[in-house]
Amino acid sequence: MIFEQIVFYFFAVVLLFAASMVITIRNPVKAALFLVLAFFTAASLWILLEAEFLAITLVLVYAGAVMVLFLFVIMMLDINLLRLREGFGEYLPIGGIVAVLLVIEMAIILGPRHFGLQKIAAPAGHPASYSNTKELGRVLYIDYVYPFEIAAFILLIAIIAAIALTLRRRKDTKYQDPRQQVRVQRSDRVRLVKMPAEKKP
C-alpha cells in the first residue's frame, strides 16, 4: 500500500507542477509540451485507478494526436507576447469575476458534501485477469447503446459541419490530379512536327 501511495504522490506532484507550468510559462510551445506532460501523468494516475483502457486512450488520443496538431499550429505562429499582454489590465476584472464564479460553483458541486470519502465507498480491487476494456465495451454497447449512438451521430455531424464550414475552393490553387498525371501520354505533351530540311541557297 505504501508503495502505491509513493507512486501516487509522485505522479500527483508532477501533474500539479506541469499543469501550473502550462498557465505560467511564457513560451507557448513550452506550455504545450507541459500540457503533454500533464496528460501523460494524468494517464499514469488513471492506471493507478485500474482504468488502463481510459489511460491508454488518453495518451493515444490527446497526447498522441490532438496535442501534436496543436503544437503543429503553435510552432508556425509568430506570437508577439507584448501585444498579447496589452489588454491584460482591461480584461482583468471581467476575467477575475468569471474565475471566482467558476471556483465557487465547483466548490458547491464538488465539495466534500457530495464527494466526501464517507459518501463513496472505496471500489474493490480486481484481479489481474479482469478486463477493463471488455467491461467498458459491455456498458457502452449494451447498457447505453442508444445514448452512445446518439453521441456518435452528433460528433459525426459536427465533423461534417466543421469541414463544410471551412472548406473553400480557391480558383488559383495549383492542384495536381495524380490520376491525370499517371494517365498522361507522350502525345499529350510532345508534338512531333515534320519539317523539310532547309536548303542552303
Binding site: 483502457f53 491508454i56 495518451v59 493515444l60 497526447a63 498522441g64
Partner: peptide
Amino acid sequence: DASLLFILAVTSM
C-alpha cells in the same frame, strides 16, 4: 490486457 493499444499509444509519443 490491452497490449495492442498500449503499443499504439506508446509509439504515438
